[in-house]
Nucleic acid binder design. Sequence first.
DNA 1: TTCCGTATAATTGTATACAATCATACCATT
DNA 2: AATGGTATGATTGTATACAATTATACGGAA
Lengths: 233, 233
Amino acid sequence: MANYDLKNEVNDKYSLRGRVFQKLREDILSGKYKEHEELKEVAIGEELGVSRTPVREAFRQLELEGLIQIVPNKGAYVTGITAKDVKDIYMIRSLLEGLCARLATEKITKEQMEEMEENIYLADFHASKGHMDQMAELDNRFHDILYEACDSKMLEHTLKDYHQYVLRVRQKTLSTNTRGRASNDEHRQIMEAIKAGDADKAEQLANKHMLNAYDNMVKNGLNEIYGEEASKE
Amino acid sequence: MANYDLKNEVNDKYSLRGRVFQKLREDILSGKYKEHEELKEVAIGEELGVSRTPVREAFRQLELEGLIQIVPNKGAYVTGITAKDVKDIYMIRSLLEGLCARLATEKITKEQMEEMEENIYLADFHASKGHMDQMAELDNRFHDILYEACDSKMLEHTLKDYHQYVLRVRQKTLSTNTRGRASNDEHRQIMEAIKAGDADKAEQLANKHMLNAYDNMVKNGLNEIYGEEASKE
DNA sequence: TTCCGTATAATTGTATACAATCATACCATT
DNA sequence: AATGGTATGATTGTATACAATTATACGGAA
């Protein structure tokens, strides 16, 4: 399914660099390239039938998104995420999504509010059917709507960065159906607070929503998966 | 053990790309290249005596830092900052510097605490002498110490990004000596709260510190300088 | 064996040639 | 004069050759 509309920057998906970028991004998020794995310019270039130049530039973009780390004269490595990183991200997101919900209460447009309501309605349906993929997709979209609605490109950009960062983790911590329902209920409460113009409540709910999401990840074995990594530092 | 030190940006200062990157970064921050100005690969390459390749890669890095925006097949443009952007950044920083101070209360090392005290002591001296350049330098360093002390590379990275972003603005809003003194007093209070282990107080003070800094910028004509830009969006 | 230096291979860094795309100016048609 | 299309130049995109750097293997000396 079309999971990246990410049109925040540009859609240069027709340039070679753009295609390499999207392919590598997908492969990293899907887990094809493991953490700390080295990405070699020629190998990837040959695999995709392009020269090193677009690959190198795609690397810089991936670094921009925090998916790889480039060490000069050495190589490009898939960024490792430790359990502590995930914890920190959710701590930060908790604050910022709260701020975002607060701002959105003032700034949200009618269209955005309608899409939000539709999103929640649809998620209810898919929850009842047990369609986990669609649930995940709608969850992503709900947060994107919220980011856009806050009318702050600085905040939107930071939140999208962090959101994208943790997509990889969801790959590993299986989200359960019960969490899917609970999450959507929280979305609904946030939406209703925004609709009612209660910025304080919206902020507080969005805040809690993130902490709950993190708690759920911990319950589902986050630390078991990333534990060894965390102990390294 | 101690596998990757995350401060690689500074490491490649001996590569051509690194040098181009630093030069352009400096020129943008100093205002040599104005907002929305187009940067051309060949022109910059000739000016620095290098080919287009390192210039192109430096461009990607600058985009990574948010200093320029690249439009495919068109060009690279210096990112514009609006008054609203600055406001949003300080709103975000207020929350995150608060979180940072809270975390630092638990995690700060003895060395970091000592450097922080020395920093404040030195700033007192330079304030009395009216050395504004040194004051600015020490202010930057104080925040960097705080970022490092929170022991969260995610938070540190985000805060450094935002910090760097607003350096361009300080160029334009003259920081007064009175604000310099007041700012350093706030630094001292934050430091003392951290030293006393009072995380709540440290968070609250760091929070307020950012809001005060923003208020000062507004007083010194931020909106007059960036007003027209802000109205564009 | 262990250590160190050197040769060799592998990989990234840079320069340059050429292709593709975009902007501009000019001319023709209406 | 206004419009539209085409030629031309400018600029970015890509491929490739070569240089610089790093990693690896090997051999000799302590």
